[in-house]
Design a protein around this nucleic acid. Structure first.
Lengths: 149, 149
DNA sequence: TCTTTAATGATATTGATTACTATTTTCCAA
DNA sequence: TTGGAAAATAGTAATCAATATCATTAAAGA
């Protein structure tokens, strides 16, 4: 949306601290740094990218901490992961229009045939400067098998 | 949709061979095996999974070949990759409803605010046995920078 | 069949992520 | 305010996914 101001970041961080306390998460300087880095950008950075940025002013932070912390935040809903299925490339020979639902536990992917997903209108405003190739709707949830385990 | 029958697979493979020839791709037993494996399932397998299956009856196929071949097929549109953004986890601290557009060249991710994407109706039929957590619309294309390079 | 050129296999390397463990820190209760 | 239990961190090793390299092999048209 609009640019992220310093004021907004401060607000986000104090809200983050409150939410952490409510969730029983200990508030550490590493966690604040990681959250701050992520809340200060709309670039959807990777773990490595966040790590490198923090390194500049917090040279002995551990990469492991960044990985672990982002996972913790994500599980608690403090942040979100853009790409649920980031572990490995997954392929499909079925070229007819359809979409997918993924189980966030076991990473199983199943087909979804729903016309309302395959016929979305995409406005020029939405496209921005991109030359569009396509789009996909990815539902995520927990499958029957994983719920019963 | 429905189950994949042996007849359907044969059809898909001969169509695949035709398309390969038209595209100037050499038709090798490895390529046929890889395509066949993928066309015979609706499980959206990873490279490793396909490799292991083929190993059973084609023991000296190389994992590298499977990687390379799937990439080739995908670039030519013979198959598709379910998860464009599979290289590394990407995070977002912005929890307000929005979606994303990704550049398939440089993997940059940008926010998309489009109400028609954030208010999709999800039918029970679509959900199947899943306990839904959410969904995302991911547009993909080529950004301005990558087009000009 | 011959030849060109693409494709393959094997291996090494890189990059992303997770596992492990000793040490340190947070934060609550005394 | 301080002591201590529990949680978090740092550092390193190990694993898993993907790519690079290169010598060898195979496909397909002349």
């Amino acid at each position: 949306m609009s640019d992220i101001t310093g004021e907004m970041i401060k607000d986000r961080i104090s809200e983050f601290i409150d939410r952490s306390k409510n969730l029983g998460l200990k508030v550490t300087p590493q966690r604040i740094a990681i959250y701050k880095e992520l809340a200060s950008t709309d670039q959807h950075p990777s773990t490595e990218t966040i790590y490198k940025k923090i390194k500049d002013y917090y040279p002995n932070i551990s990469l492991t901490t960044v990985y672990r912390t982002l996972e913790t935040f994500e599980k608690l809903g403090l942040i979100s992961v853009v790409n649920v299925l980031y572990n490995a490339a997954r392929y499909d020979a079925n070229l007819e229009p359809h979409n997918h639902i993924v189980c966030t536990e076991c990473k199983r992917v199943e087909d979804v045939y729903d016309d309302s997903f395959t016929t979305l209108d995409i406005s020029d405003k939405t496209l921005g400067d991109y030359q569009i190739k396509g789009y996909s709707v990815l539902l995520n949830g927990i499958c029957k098998d994983c719920r019963s385990n």
